[in-house]
Structures are given as C-alpha cells and as structure tokens.
Design a protein around this nucleic acid. Sequence first.
DNA 1: CCGTCATGGTTCGTGGCACGAACTAAAGAT
DNA 2: ATCTTTAGTTCGTGCCACGAACCATGACGG
Lengths: 157, 157
Amino acid sequence: MYYEEMGKQTDGPMDVATALVRTSFLVDAVYAEASGDYGITPQQGNLLCVLMAQPHGMGELGGMLRLAKSSLTGLVDRTARRGLVRRETAPDDGRAVVIALTEEGAEVAAEFYADACRRIAALTDGLDEEARTGLTALLEQVVTENHVPEVFTGTAE
Amino acid sequence: MYYEEMGKQTDGPMDVATALVRTSFLVDAVYAEASGDYGITPQQGNLLCVLMAQPHGMGELGGMLRLAKSSLTGLVDRTARRGLVRRETAPDDGRAVVIALTEEGAEVAAEFYADACRRIAALTDGLDEEARTGLTALLEQVVTENHVPEVFTGTAE
DNA sequence: CCGTCATGGTTCGTGGCACGAACTAAAGAT
DNA sequence: ATCTTTAGTTCGTGCCACGAACCATGACGG
C-alpha cells in the first residue's frame, strides 16, 4: 500500500532485525486479541500461564515476569479482583505470600493458553512442515542463547 | 532453573507457538530497553520510526500503528511535548493535520532506529550466516502472509 | 533475650497507554 | 441551504509500570 506509492522497495532482502520486530508486532497483536476474548489483559494472561505450572511467591513471579515488586502487587490485585487468582499466606514464612490459581483461574488459564497457542501457531500456516520445524529450531536457539524470562515455556501440561 | 526442580523436560522439541511467544518477549524487552536509552517509550519509538519515512496524517498513523484515534491523539501529544514531533495543519484540508518530525525528532529517530536494529540483530549473534538468512526468510514469509502494520519496515533510509 | 539488619510485600504518587462515547469543525453532497 | 461524512480532540475509565517510602516478619550476633 504505502510502499508502492512511495516507490520504495518493499520485497527486497529484509534484514533480520526488521523481520524480528515485525514478527513481534504480529505475535503481540494476536496474543492481545486472544487475551481480550477471555476477558483478561495480556499481562494477566502471562500471570495465569506462569501459575499453571504451580503456585509461586511474589519474588519468583517478579523475576519470571520481569516486573518490579510494586508492579506485581498491582497486577495480582487486579487479577485477584477478577477472581482468577488468590493470595495464600505461606505456611513456613509469615511475611511471604503464595499466589495460586483459583478454580476459575485454572479453567481460564487452560483455555486461554491452548487458544493462544493455536492462534499463534496458525500464523505459520503458510509454511510447510519442514519450514516450520526449521523456524522453531532457529527461534529456540535464539531464545536459549539470550536468557528469556520463564514465561510461556510450553511445559505447562 | 525451575524446570530441573520440577523434573519437567525443557529442551525437548519446543512448539512453534512457544518459540514465537518467547522470541517476542525477548524482542519487546530489547526494544523497550533501547527506547529507554533515548528517553522515549516504545510507542513513541514506533511513532518516530514511522515518521522517518515521511510525515503522515492522524488517520494514516492510526492505521499503521493500529491505534484508535483517541489513543493516537494522546501519543502525539506526549511526543510533541518532548519536542520530537510537530502538528502542521494540512494546506489543502482545513480539518486534517500532518504530523512531522522536528529536527531533534529526526535525530533521535535515526539514532534510535539504528541502535534498536543493531541490538535486535545482536540477538542472533549465535547463528551463523546461513542460519540467519534462513531465519530472516522464514519470518519474512510469516509477516507477509499475515498483514502486519506497516511499522519498522526497514525501508527508512 | 534484644537490638540490628535483611527480606517479602504493600502503599502511594506519577506518568504513560489504550479505549469508547461524545463533541467540534471543515468538506462534500443533494 | 441543509445533511452527511470525515478528521481530530476531549473526557472519563481502567490498566500498567515504576521508585520511594513503609511495615511486617524472620535471621543474626552479642
């Protein structure tokens, strides 16, 4: 659309940074759309996905989601207000708190996670099987070589 | 860290959705970090990058950045308050407005864009030349087959 | 024991972001 | 001259992220 009007090349060799940024935009948009369909925000979706594996303390969650303590307090507050998550006081440590999914939260998390995976995988529908596994392997190498927060690890079922 | 403790497999075949989501997290983090180093937010960075090519009206910008009109008004307000962008009234249409980079905005945009590209490309330092071009080609196919907003198209210089 | 310090979280204030609904003003159409 | 569409803004709401200050509880050292 815009390119042609401007007479600039659009299909020349895209550099890897551009490809990554644009892919990121795409994935973010799909992820946000999926979140919305389940009545949650993307951040709340992240929280639920992390908690699918097991409950966690605020400290751990902050590390995994890369959030400051005060940011996390708010996120948990809002997610708890929606009834998806619960603060339990840790048995051994009186000051610590453990965040766990409520029953409803577990349902929403499972459905949302599955749906988000499906929709994001669908972005690669144009790739044949070999290309898709190749892409997966390359991205996997990128994320493992750069320490990525332990979100959406796909180990959650 | 967490995986081993749980006895769950972590290095098995990651599915493509997980790989995409985690890559997206990584790219977002790097992009945000780069933005911060230039005193702008990621959204303001997007705006600057889009305007690098040429000035645009609010309508166009909304389409490219996938923002509602009212969201864009605020973004332009804040970016203009930082002196990076300017509202010019369109000569032909009395109600339309054209957003253009200020001199300082053009400088910041160029530096930020180059730096962000560099840092994001650096995420693939672990890949050899062939792998990198392969990854680029695959991602390029994904973004072209799913209409992605015209952000960060890499055509801007 | 009793101070002292570290740790785990919350509160508060600030600023940015995104949206829809309601609105204004200029173009354009009849 | 009106009616309608188009381009943007305003306003109110809610979410998100942060740092600084704060409050408990737990851990240590004497």
